[in-house]
Write a protein that binds this DNA or RNA. Structure first.
Lengths: 242, 242
DNA sequence: TCGGATCCGATTGTTAACAATATCAGGTTA
DNA sequence: TAACCTGATATTGTTAACAATCGGATCCGA
């Protein structure tokens, strides 16, 4: 099971709200509940076979994760992901994961290091890289980043990145499909990051990690720009006021 | 009113849970409800004159802010702040606010810049710095950092720092007092940060901001170490197994 | 025909009662 | 005496009904 699905994932959560929260989160992240769609409390409640109480609780947590947006007396909608927000997210990751890499270089254990190396080897052997598509879509990339963050030893960093932001990133990947020729490059950069961490070189680890994430962002930015100019050419309505 | 108390603060929130959430948050942050104390739902509900529904909603949001910790079927306690956690928080701030300063240097407006300068002048004239105590305790420091983050233009950064982390920082200040001879030094560093931002020098802005926050952390770290060695000397029980 | 007020329906927010779980006291047994 | 089991109590989790608010359709007037 992917490491970012947290401990209570296996439907084994203690409380109804817990379980429904996890299920709803997956449903939203994987697009089963479409982005931007309105959420009806009674509807969902009957669908999941619970009453509105725990459902509202779960909704509150989803709101805290920024997966749904609520307005009082109006209702909740699944968040609709914007390109700008994704770019903002990359900025955050650059800062946070850069720091995580720095910390990891300072205090990673040999065991964790071995784990990282094995993960990279798995990615390599799986032969997904040549095809280019799979590395991002199957979340091997996120797995790697996740482990670095964990190795930082900063619980708050782990908490923040793994409980909130990563689910959002996953959602973006499901929505936008993020296949890219960068897969192979990204994989190589992962190797460099592990090297720097293994060398116990915090400055270098942070530098490479930041550059790595920044490159991903620029890549996505270019993709968006290309898409935009395409749609603008084929849909003249969108270029000026509709 | 301090800028980090958000828009719905004036008891004017739309829903009961909103208002109770804000009131509870203040009560916790300012120590009115002591850190580490257990929270009884029926008790608080009657105290605030509402029923347990909206109260539980508010508790959920407090949990999302990391101001309370809940365990299923057991209950909620106000978070008890540890020294380690505060240091972790500083690490996070170093990364995030460093990035915020960088972004601010890139895209701050003249108006915001003027705001910043005026804020510093106010702090200077208020004569609090000489006494050393007030700058941190009265949250002039946090006000400054808050504005930088807002000037970054990254909504997610703003969100994260201003809705969650800053309330925690406030709580630490109320709890630990944080008076320090660093007040004057910190004030000067704020000046340097504004200069770098005004020069539109992102690298420098990030560098100084990170060094600034790092210095605060180191300062706190030393305070803690001093306290620890003191208590350990006077309370021999604590040095080894109780 | 267009703009605005009004009513209706549906949805959300809130409440109070019910069920399930954990804590703690007391008793029992080795 | 100490460990364990057992039951009472209080707290939390859950439910279903009630109240308040919003959005949209309809009707009216200019």
């Amino acid at each position: 099971m992917a490491p970012y699905t947290d401990q209570q994932a296996g439907e084994q959560g203690v409380t109804l709200a817990d379980r429904v929260f996890t299920r709803l989160r997956n449903a939203i992240v994987e697009g089963e509940i479409p982005a931007g769609s309105k959420i009806s409390e009674p509807e969902l409640a009957t669908e999941y076979g619970i009453s509105r109480g725990p459902l509202r609780d779960a909704m509150g947590r989803l709101e805290a994760c920024h997966l749904v947006e609520r307005r009082a007396n109006v209702g909740a909608r699944v968040v609709s992901l914007s390109q700008e927000d994704l770019l903002e997210l990359y900025i955050l990751r650059e800062a946070l994961e850069g720091m995580a890499a720095r910390l990891a270089a300072e205090r990673i254990t040999e065991k964790e290091l071995e784990h990282l190396r094995r993960l990279l080897k798995q990615h390599e052997q799986r032969g997904e890289l040549q095809e280019g598509i799979a590395y991002f879509q199957k979340e091997g990339d996120l797995d790697f980043h996740f482990r670095i963050v964990q190795a930082s030893g900063n619980q708050r960093l782990v908490q923040l990145l793994c409980n909130d932001l990563y689910h959002l990133m996953r959602m973006y990947r499901y929505q936008f499909g993020m296949a890219s020729a960068r897969a192979l490059i990204a994989f190589r950069e992962h190797g460099h990051i592990v090297e720097a961490i293994a060398d116990r070189d915090p400055e270098m680890a942070e530098l490479i990690m930041r550059r790595h994430i920044r490159s991903s962002r620029v890549n996505v930015e270019m993709l968006f720009d290309a898409q935009d100019s395409l749609t603008r050419r084929s849909d003249p309505d969108l270029s000026e006021a509709g």
